[in-house]
């Protein structure tokens, strides 16, 4: 590679984008082929989900797969009229927003304490966080449920908030990203008279936008799709989330697969929209925020 590279391709972050002339088109074509094949493989189950939502129950599973729908648009009407989809969407939305907000806020706040300040007991506490990720939830689910019941939390939306807002995942993720921010930035800020809280607010937060964006999205998706948590804690039909609600289409011996798939399609759409709208934040790096290390 020669010096000319810098002139021709300003975006040098990845090897695939580099290389002038013929090489660009070669890599590009290869990239497109790879991406297209991947996209088909990746979207096939979603496509099948959409197809199934347009079928009658007994045509969802057949040998061989039928790639032609029955055009049963009625499922999309039924799910709103015959079930409590509106309530489920509302609850899911409330939980996702509140939990994501708390998780991102307290997680990124705590991460600063773990990554940028030295104090005794810090590493022990952090290990405690990490260690709990390693315990399978179904093992301590019952003790936790009894505890929540004693705190009068179970069967409320608060139970889900309490359960998921204070996870170790967010703390760990943000801590790792803070560590990529050069220490000199904080030092300079301290000399400028900023408090630690100010550094977190004015330096760290803006610099970790891609990390915050991915944490937000991942938390949102996890809460949105969580099944076991609401299953144990949300018993009142007024509190049900989409995932729990869709399970009411499964009886002891029968299941309304077409309606389940209809609900699943509907539940994916908001996330797809959030992702499509928010994705510019995932690829907005230090370089583009104008602050240089």
């Amino acid at each position: 590679m020669s010096l000319t590279d810098t002139r021709v391709t300003p975006d040098l972050r990845t090897p695939a984008a580099a290389g002038p002339g013929r090489r660009i088109s070669f890599w590009r074509v290869l990239g497109y082929i790879a991406l297209t094949v991947a996209a088909i493989g990746v979207l096939a189950p979603f496509f099948w989900m959409v197809l199934s939502s347009l079928k009658t129950n007994n045509n969802v599973f057949t040998v061989p797969i039928r790639w032609v729908p029955d055009w049963q648009f009625g499922n999309y009407v039924d799910i709103w009229t015959k079930s409590d989809m509106l309530t489920w969407v509302k609850n899911t939305l409330i939980l996702s927003v509140v939990i994501t907000f708390l998780q991102v806020l307290t997680g990124s706040f705590a991460a600063y304490g773990f990554s940028r300040l030295r104090w005794p007991g810090r590493d022990v506490l952090f290990l405690a966080y990490l260690a709990t990720i390693a315990v399978p939830w179904q093992a301590y689910m019952i003790p936790q449920f009894i505890l929540f019941s004693k705190l009068n939390l179970s069967n409320t939306l608060w139970a889900m908030v309490a359960l998921q807002a204070f996870g170790a995942f967010g703390v760990f993720l943000m801590k790792q990203f803070y560590e990529t921010v050069p220490e000199e930035l904080s030092e300079a800020a301290r000399l400028d008279g900023l408090s630690e809280y100010g550094i977190w607010r004015r330096i760290m937060l803006p610099l970790s936008i891609p990390a915050i964006a991915s944490l937000t999205l991942l938390t949102f998706v996890n809460v949105w799709n969580d099944y076991l948590g609401p299953l144990i804690y949300l018993r009142d039909p007024d509190l049900w989330t989409i995932q729990i609600g869709l399970k009411t289409f499964i009886g002891q011996y029968n299941a309304q697969y077409a309606l389940i798939m209809t609900g699943s399609v509907l539940s994916v759409l908001p996330i797809a929209i959030v992702f499509a709208l928010g994705q510019k934040y995932f690829v907005q790096g230090i370089a583009t925020t104008g602050i240089k290390g």
């Binding site: 990529t180 991915s214 690829v283």
Partner: peptide, 11 residues
Amino acid sequence: LLFLAGLQTIP
């Protein structure tokens, strides 16, 4: 997604 976020931190 996480790698993508990580890539942005490289100056």
